[in-house]
Design a protein around this nucleic acid. Structure first.
Length: 668
DNA sequence: GAGCACTGC
């Protein structure tokens, strides 16, 4: 369900003719700057029209002569598609002709395409084939201030490419005032000892565009709130009873808080004076089924005020019009990676000032608004200016692998916008070495390492896939790779339907664990279910997720074929193999890729990692939650609150660990 | 015996 397909709902309702946008007045300045300077940083608020107008200005000014293309990258798929649709509309062409987009599984471009919107991750991949990105005359990196790991790496690559392609024009678009940092990054040599640094003024220009937002009143609390969920609920009632019409958007951190707040509003609504306007509370978070997410875009019924309780999804990814009041709890759940333990954590932390500003800005899209912050002004002043960039708190193994494949051998010296901590880099290098992707000199191995980099799955799964032919289970591992990469959205869980979900899963349950259960579910989907939505409904499978699994599987299958690896996924082959033998081949193959994620069950039913230092719990969604096992491997580990959970667990034999990872376990 | 913010190839 994270696979939201909100399509047209994301297109901003405000559809002013382009000539009326503030950016129109800056057209000549922008074109002059881009012509003159290799790097132009464009600072503009949401609604300034930078993403839609700049590429069209450039196209009109002749930047697509000689068949060159203007690329605009976005951090999210929905943004890439919806902006392309709007620009094609303004341009007066069909999407995929002069204006197109390209995202994973969807290349809507053609030989006539001049303006191409794509995700930043995809452009990095294009560099594997075309290292200088020579098809493009201009590359615009949109939403760079979000500091996604992909856009950070892309900026580093562009800086390298620029040195070999001085004619390339780079545009960085950002909503906040980090413009100087971006410009300084491109003017620095990246090497402190070098004196070759060009001056910032020679390299880059900064253009500021005014936005199209309305003034927003910001209000703080006198004293800190003890319980911000409770405070959010009472604040909603205060706004409702004292403030004029207008919908309310409340930022909380997660599903639990949101459900709690929605329920509290429903219960207490009865106390509202008779005849007064009612409140319609709506939840919004990524785990919600798509239909329920869509409710937030509907206009509230007559005599109702719409109140949306949302996670961070409404901060940048989803735009809801008509919001006049924003209530901000001041917290967000952030993912971080601990290189010492290799465990990801998901914890509530204070928002940054930039985040708080972005949240407040959601109130002023259609008329002047108000933002009520559930913290004191002193607390606000103490907030960090910006979030820690993703690249400084993530597992870097997939990105180190990509950089190596791009020919950047010394990744420790790669010119990062902000360098990640050395521990993160070392941890990533160690893992890649243990998987055989890097040799003793930390050089990418061929063909293994190079192939792992080309596969669009994380390194441990890439190793598993590439080992599969040797174990005689390519077809099954292809399915397992596709299913696990869906990230837990396979099963539908409706409210209060936990028991049903449990029994639905049990239909496909395999004694060996979750990976084989996922395999069974997929095989039933493509054979018995004949890919029908009805089959999915009856078995509480997420139809969209299953359909996506089928495309991912297809893509991975094509990679393996291209590598010349044998795949026999004919029904006849499946019929001729002994199920127990097949299951063992799969478990052995999984061990060959996931040996670093091994654990042993204790007498009390919890697990310990191999060194015995960390207590791990089977996630309640796992089959191993209430079953006995000895040694297992798992796909994912995450710490939330006070417990560390492992998900997608499969039983293995201890001696397989030594067999497939002798070097990894020898020293432990 | 209990639950994951978001994004991407």
């Amino acid at each position: 369900m994270s696979d939201v397909d909100l399509g047209t709902a994301f297109i901003p309702a405000l559809h002013k003719p382009p000539a009326l946008l503030p950016i129109a007045r800056h057209r000549e300045t922008l074109l002059y700057m881009i012509e003159t300077y290799p790097v132009t940083v464009v600072v503009g608020q949401t609604g300034s029209g930078k993403s839609t107008q700049i590429p069209q200005f450039l196209e009109q000014a002749g930047w697509c002569a000689d068949g060159k293309i203007i690329a605009v990258t976005q951090p999210r798929r929905v943004a890439a598609t919806t902006v392309a649709i709007r620009v094609a509309d303004e341009f007066g062409c069909e999407v995929g002709k002069e204006v197109g987009y390209s995202i994973r599984f969807e290349d809507v471009t053609s030989s006539t395409t001049r303006i191409k919107f794509l995700t930043d991750g995809l452009l990095i991949r294009e560099a594997l084939v075309d290292p200088l990105l020579s098809r493009y005359s201009v590359i615009m990196v949109d939403e760079a201030h979000e500091r996604s790991i992909s856009s950070d790496i892309l900026l580093g690559l562009l800086k390298k490419i620029r040195k070999k392609r001085p004619e390339l024009r780079i545009i960085i678009s950002s909503a906040t005032l980090q413009a100087e940092d971006f410009r300084n990054f491109f003017s620095g040599s990246g090497d402190e000892k070098s004196l070759e640094s060009e001056s910032a003024a020679d390299i880059g220009a900064i253009v500021s565009l005014e936005g199209r937002t309305y003034p927003i009143d910001i209000l703080y609390m006198d004293t800190p709130a003890e319980d911000y969920v409770e405070k959010a609920v009472s604040t909603v009632f205060d706004i409702h009873t004292t403030e004029p019409k207008g919908d309310i958007l409340v930022f909380l951190t997660g599903r639990e808080e949101i459900d709690q707040a929605v329920q509290a509003i429903s219960e207490r609504s009865a106390q509202l004076p008779l005849g007064s306007e009612a409140i319609l509370p709506l939840p919004l978070y990524a785990g919600l089924p798509t239909e329920q997410q869509m409710y937030v875009f509907d206009e509230a019924p007559v005599n109702f005020r719409k109140v949306i309780f949302s996670t961070n999804i409404a901060e940048a990814s989803v735009t809801i019009d008509g919001i006049v009041y924003v209530v901000d709890c001041g917290f967000v759940k952030l993912r971080a990676y601990n290189p010492k333990t290799g465990i990801e954590t998901l914890t509530a932390t204070h928002v940054s000032k930039a985040s708080a500003a972005q949240r407040a800005g959601r109130a002023g899209r259609t008329k002047p608004g108000k933002c009520l912050r559930l913290y004191t002004e002193e607390a606000y002043q103490a907030l960090p200016d910006a979030n820690i960039p993703e690249i400084q708190r993530s597992n870097l193994a997939p990105f180190v692998l990509q950089l190596k494949a791009l020919g950047i051998d010394n990744v420790l010296r790669f010119d990062f916008l902000t360098p990640p901590p050395a521990e993160l880099m070392i941890k990533a290098l160690e893992l890649l070495y243990s998987l055989g992707a890097l040799d003793d000199y930390a050089k990418l191995t061929r063909p293994l390492g190079m192939r792992m980099a080309e596969l669009a799955v994380e390194p441990m799964m890439a190793k598993t896939l590439l080992s599969a032919p040797a174990f005689g289970c390519s077809s099954e591992i292809l399915t397992i790779a596709a299913m696990t990469s869906l990230g837990g959205s396979v099963w539908i869980t409706h409210d209060g339907g936990k028991k049903e979900a449990e029994s639905a899963r049990r239909k496909f349950a395999a004694e060996e664990g979750d990976h084989l259960t996922l395999l069974n579910a997929y095989q039933a989907f493509v054979t018995k279910g004949r890919k029908e939505a009805r089959f999915c409904r009856e078995n509480l499978l997420n139809f969209k997720a299953m359909t996506r699994a089928a495309s991912i599987r297809g893509q991975l299958r094509r990679y393996l074929e291209r590598f010349g690896l044998a795949i026999d996924d004919s029904p006849a082959a499946a019929a001729h193999s002994d199920p127990a033998t097949k299951a063992e081949q799969i478990r052995r193959c999984l061990t060959a890729g996931y040996f670093a994620h091994a654990a042993k069950m204790q007498a009390d039913g919890t697990f310990r990692n191999v060194s015995g230092t960390t207590v791990l719990h089977a996630h309640p969604s796992s089959l191993m939650f209430n079953r006995k096992a000895e040694w297992v491997i798992f796909h994912e580990v995450m710490e939330t609150g006070d417990k560390t959970y492992i998900r997608d667990i499969t039983k293995i034999e201890k001696n397989w660990l030594l067999e497939y990872a002798p070097n990894f376990y020898k020293t432990k």
